[in-house]
Every structure is written in C-alpha cells, then in structure tokens.
Design a protein around this nucleic acid. Structure first.
Lengths: 156, 156
DNA sequence: ATTGAAATATGTTCGTA
DNA sequence: TACGAACATATTTCAAT
C-alpha cells in the first residue's frame, strides 16, 4: 500500500483529535467523539488514516525521572578526532543509558548529546568514565540545565 | 493524601509494565497481564500506585513532524543582557511555537532552546524575526541537528 | 498483593447512506 | 466521510484470600 506521506491533508477535526491524544494518549476515542460531536467510528477511521500517513509515530507513557532520583540534566558538546567516525561514536553512546539524545550537529562540535543523571557526581562519572573514554573523543563541553522551562511537541 | 514521591519502590513487575507502556501507551492492560502472567486487576492496582507516586507523568501521542514538512531541528544558545530577566525571556519564547524546549543553563549562554522548523529559511526567520527581536537577547549561537541518532527516555 | 467475577465502558468492524 | 448497530475486548470495582 502506498504511503501518503507527501500528500497528507489534515483538517480541523483531525487536529482536534490529535490535540486530545497528544495530551493524553489513553483518552478513550469515544470520549473524544462525544466532545467534538462526531461518531466513534468516524474517529476510528480518521485515526487509521493518520497512522497510515505516518503522522502518528506512536504513543508513550511519560516517566518523571525525578521520582527515581534523576535530577541533573545536561547537554554535552563532543569534539571528535577525525579518525573517529560519527557512526562509531554513536554506537558507543547508545550503550550509555544516561544518554537520552544524540544529535549530529553543525558548528563547533561533532555531536551534541543530552544526558540525564542522578546528581552532579553521577554526571561527572558519566563524563569521565563513560564518555571521555570513548576512543576519538578529544574534548567535551558541558551545559547543565538548571531548569527546563519549556517542553512541548510541534503545535498542530 | 500524602505523596509517595520519596519512598517509591518499584519492583521487576512494575518495570515490565512500565516498559510496555513506555513503548505503547495504548497497549491494553489485559494484554500486558497475559504477557507477564499476572491478573489484569493486579496491573491496574500497580498502575494506580505508580500514578499516585508521580512516577507516571502522563502519556502522549508522538507526532512525526517530518510528515508536516518540519525537517530542520536546531539548538540555539542565547546570550541575555543583564537587564533582561530569564523569566521574561521565557515568557516571550513560549509565544514562539517553533520553540519546543527551553533550558536555563550553566556555561556560556543564559538559555539553550530547541527549535523545530520546516527548513533553513524558516529557521532563519525564527532566529531573526522572532528570537533576535526579544528585548535583551544580545546574541545567539545556532547548531543545526543534521540527524538525531538517539531519542529515548530514562531506562527503567 | 493478588485473584476471578460482574458490571460498565470502550474498541472494532461492517453494512448503509 | 460519516453513521449506528452488533460483537469482541477492555476497564474498573469489589469481596475474598
């Protein structure tokens, strides 16, 4: 079946449905149906269309890491030696569970990562013991997030 | 009711449940129940405990922005004049829908933000028209994410 | 903490408009 | 697209262990 990725058209009803589910993935379809005055079957059909288009990538439970004692978040810019290929570095970074994001970036660094640690000491260990010891990592620059003030998805 | 935030204990079964739901928030509890060999009622009860503890912060549908034509992601470090307070800047940044994250950081910048735009031209407009025009923003440094290679939550 | 059962609500499909 | 009806599943609560 051909994907619709390039000609997806979403109307106001699609947007309403998506906005509900982006806030709460477990909100019952029938509840949304009642709120926007359309049948459950129609929403079901629209959701299937949106899934097939690839617009809906999935759904997730969101965990609050602070409850598990993880309260230090930081961004780390990584300088790589020319000898170290980016894919090799990424492979090594995937093995470090504290690394939540990894971007191949323009600018000063080769790589920018986001790490989540319990505290500053834990962060230092991850930097010195795990990241710095990856072959080809010459230098890092760390920016601790003292507070995350915005966290959202694309606005629909 | 007193929150359990500080003495939450999660065991292996909790972890299994969470791992399923972190992957797919809409996976039926009964399906999980069958997979890990426990009754649906028990899972229900554990989930309520986990919600009350604050560990489960909610759930979300994940949208694939590329399908909507958003394919340029960038991090932008922002230098603020001393006259501009961080909360005022954040208030202004919240009004820019392309700004998905905002962190108050240590290091060179006052603020580090993540922006999602359609293309480089769109990014330039957001930088010049929206961000640079916030009072107190003296300078910005932009790092375009050519590819995001890791994206995950804390490992449970 | 866990269970099974019962009651209620939701998910899903299908024929029709 | 949308609808309603019909059927299959899931959620939720509860008494009992």
């Amino acid at each position: 079946m051909k994907s619709d990725k390039e000609n997806i058209k979403i109307d106001g009803i699609d947007k309403k449905i998506l906005r509900f589910l982006m806030e709460d993935a477990r909100k019952p379809v029938l509840e949304i149906a009642r709120k926007i005055g359309i049948s459950g079957a129609a929403i079901h059909q629209r959701l299937r269309k949106l899934e097939n288009s690839g617009l809906i990538a999935g759904s997730k439970f969101v965990i609050n890491p602070k409850v598990l004692g993880y309260s230090t978040m930081a961004y780390v810019g990584i300088y790589l030696d020319k000898a170290m290929s980016n894919p090799m570095a990424v492979k090594a970074l995937k093995k470090i569970p504290e690394v939540l994001e990894c971007h191949y970036t323009t600018g000063n660094w080769s790589i920018l990562i986001k790490v989540l640690c319990k505290d500053n000491e834990h962060l230092m260990q991850v930097l010195n013991k795990d990241i710095q010891q990856i072959g080809g990592v010459s230098r890092t620059e760390t920016f601790i997030s003292l507070e995350q003030q915005i966290e959202r998805q694309i606005s629909i």
